[in-house]
């Protein structure tokens, strides 16, 4: 077990290091702004006084590395600075509720997509090279090739305009019941499900079929093991590592890739906030959101790696 723990610990350490490097990248990218940040935010028409005031407010008079550490330790404590746009709210209070919404939407989609994708992937692997498999191949390829806004608008057109059974805009008032919430966010969740299910399904199929050429699969067949059992008992346990990886990748995508879907459905999540902040050049918010997204992404990848280490029988049962 010692080896396994060292491996996991190493991976954790590496993940933290990556996060640190990414935070440096995010922070100092803004430093690359030509000219003065405050000036850039306020535009050419600003008076020197207002620029100076903003500089003071943003702490721009200190050297960059000090501001970086202030920002980083602040971020660890949950203080992400203040918004550059009046009324200069704390960034955390701007992001907080929206991040919950984004997480909710991502979780909603994941709960549907992950089990469906893995079981469909296994089924398609079992039915490989049949008509069903070919059709599934074309459909999934089409689904992953379509931009999210295309799928989103098609769903709106069909289920909100032509057959009006779902709302086109996913607004979430604070006082709705959970069931009502699920209903209102159904279309954006479905859009996400369509995209990630196709991808996960293809990867699950590929991971299993990849293993079907292994001698131990032939051995199982020559032992008289029925086809479904060959897949479920002999191929699947060895395919977990790639499957876990693709699931994590798609979960990460769900959290970060919702930006487009949020815009299509005018859903009040972090994605919309980010797009808004980018066009208004509200850098404290952009930095904070980027950092949160990157951290989520890194954490999920980390979880996937640890997961594949833990499901590897060679590592789990050392010599």
């Amino acid at each position: 077990m010692g080896d396994l723990l060292t491996l996991v610990a190493k991976r954790l350490g590496y993940g933290l290091l990556t996060l640190l490097v990414v935070s440096i990248l995010i922070f100092f990218a803004v430093e690359l702004l030509p000219g003065d940040t405050a000036q850039a935010i306020l535009g050419q028409s600003a008076t020197p006084d207002t620029v100076a005031a903003l500089r003071e407010e943003l702490g721009l008079n200190q050297p960059a590395y000090i501001r970086y550490f202030d920002w980083l330790f602040g971020a660890i404590r949950g203080d992400l600075g203040v918004s550059a746009i009046p009324p200069h709210q704390p960034v955390i209070s701007v992001i907080g509720p929206r991040f919950t919404h984004t997480l909710f939407l991502a979780a909603y989609a994941a709960v549907i997509a992950v089990p469906v994708a893995i079981s469909l992937g296994v089924i398609v692997a079992l039915l490989r090279n049949t008509v069903f498999d070919r059709v599934a191949n074309v459909l999934t390829l089409t689904s992953i090739s379509s931009p999210e806004f295309f799928l989103g608008y098609i769903l709106i057109l069909i289920f909100a305009v032509k057959i009006p059974i779902f709302p086109a805009l996913a607004t979430v008032p604070t006082d709705v019941s959970f069931g009502e919430l699920l209903y209102r966010t159904f279309l954006p969740a479905l859009t996400l499900v369509l995209v990630v299910t196709a991808h996960m399904m293809r990867m699950t199929r590929a991971a299993i079929i990849n293993l079907l050429a292994s001698p131990y699969i032939e051995m199982a067949r020559l032992k008289g093991v029925p086809p479904w059992k060959v897949i479920v008992k002999h191929a699947l346990p060895n395919a977990w590592a790639p499957i876990i990886n693709v699931v994590a990748l798609n979960l990460a995508y769900l959290v970060t890739g919702v930006v487009l879907v949020e815009v299509v459905f005018v859903y009040p999540g972090v994605g919309q906030l980010l797009v808004d902040a980018v066009s208004k050049r509200n850098f404290p918010v952009v930095q904070a959101v980027s950092l949160i997204f990157a951290a989520t992404f890194i954490l999920l990848n980390l979880a996937a790696d640890v997961g594949s280490i833990l499901t590897n029988p060679r590592l789990r049962h050392p010599k």
Binding site: S214, P215, Y216, E218, M219, A220, R221, L222, K223, G224, V225, P226, H234, P237, N238, P313, R314
Partner: peptide, 22 residues
């Protein structure tokens, strides 16, 4: 399939690759 394993069995070249690692 009903014959395989029960009445006709197979021993492969590479045992290391033919046993399922899981």
């Amino acid at each position: 399939r009903a014959l395989r394993g029960s009445r006709i069995a197979y021993v492969a070249q590479s045992a290391a690759a033919s046993f399922n690692p899981a």
